[in-house]
């Protein structure tokens, strides 16, 4: 019913230029992949969470809490299979590989939270326009935003369809994993069909409104870049530069770690 990702608040972050928000998002990706030792990632994680707090995007994180929890658990275990160290603890887990798993989990969470921050505070059109002003072709930007738009509409139809099948006696909450997967078939087929149908109408509506009629197009939306944008971009840029430098000097690695 209420599946919009954009949260319509008026926070400092919401008022930022979408270009700033996209670049901050990119910055967070760059710095977070540099280090493999958890303490080095903590400042980055902290900054990203600060961003979340300022943007009040908690609500969207809360919505995907189950997903985040599953990813965290899996990531904490799985990365141990891809690394080893000198101090064996138990099973496949060494002290070094455990640290590495924690770091990779932080990385994963930072990337997701950063993405959630971006889409919770930026309208679709702003995102497209921001990407275009940053040099992406219009069609590419539009395609990305269309994909994002599919998330809430698909979630809404999934909800209706689940209700329709439950009222026919489908019980989605019991049985083992295999049984449960079979039970989802009555949901998935109608979801695919309605999604394809509405995407089709969407395509027709787009063309009927002259999408791609000309090479050039104008934008009603205007982007305003202010002093806060500049401070954040420069501050963030410095942070990236320092991080790159420290990484270059060899900081942030886990001694004794072997990655496969």
């Amino acid at each position: 019913m209420d599946a919009e990702l954009y949260l319509d608040y008026n926070t400092v972050i919401h008022r930022l230029d979408p270009r700033t928000k996209i670049l901050l998002f990119v910055y967070s990706f760059i710095v977070v992949v540099l280090y493999e030792h958890p303490p080095w990632l903590l400042p980055i994680a902290l900054l990203v969470l600060l961003h979340t707090a300022a943007a009040r995007s908690w609500r969207n994180l809360w919505r995907i809490r189950v997903l985040l929890l599953i990813l965290t658990v899996w990531s904490l275990i799985l990365w141990n299979f891809f690394a080893s160290g000198e101090t064996h603890l138990f099973w496949v887990i060494d002290k070094e590989s455990l640290l590495f798993s924690v770091a990779r989990t932080i990385l994963l969470l930072v990337m997701i939270i950063s993405g959630v921050n971006l889409i919770s505070t930026t309208r679709n059109e702003e995102l497209v326009l921001g990407m275009i002003r940053l040099g992406l072709p219009y069609r590419v930007g539009f395609a990305i935003s269309t994909a994002l738009r599919l998330v809430p509409t698909t979630a809404a139809s999934l909800q209706t369809i689940a209700q329709a099948q439950r009222s026919r006696g489908l019980d989605l909450d019991s049985g083992n994993i295999l049984e449960r997967m079979r039970k989802y078939i009555p949901l998935l087929i109608p979801v695919f069909i309605t999604t394809i149908r509405s995407t089709n109408i969407f395509g027709m509506a787009l063309e009927s409104k002259g999408f791609g009629a000309r090479e050039d197009r104008t934008f009603y939306l205007q982007l305003h870049s202010g002093i806060v944008d500049r401070i954040l971009l420069i501050g963030g840029g410095l942070f990236v530069l320092v991080s790159l430098y420290l990484n270059f000097r060899g900081y942030g690695d886990i001694p004794g770690l072997t990655r496969f």
């Binding site: 309208r123 679709n124 269309t146 509405s198 109408i201 002259g210 197009r217 104008t218």
Partner: peptide, 21 residues
Amino acid sequence: EAQLFSTNVELEVAFGPENFA
């Protein structure tokens, strides 16, 4: 439902004219 795709009313109306520059 399927023919509206903008995040606010104004932008929905602007989409057509924008395409014709």
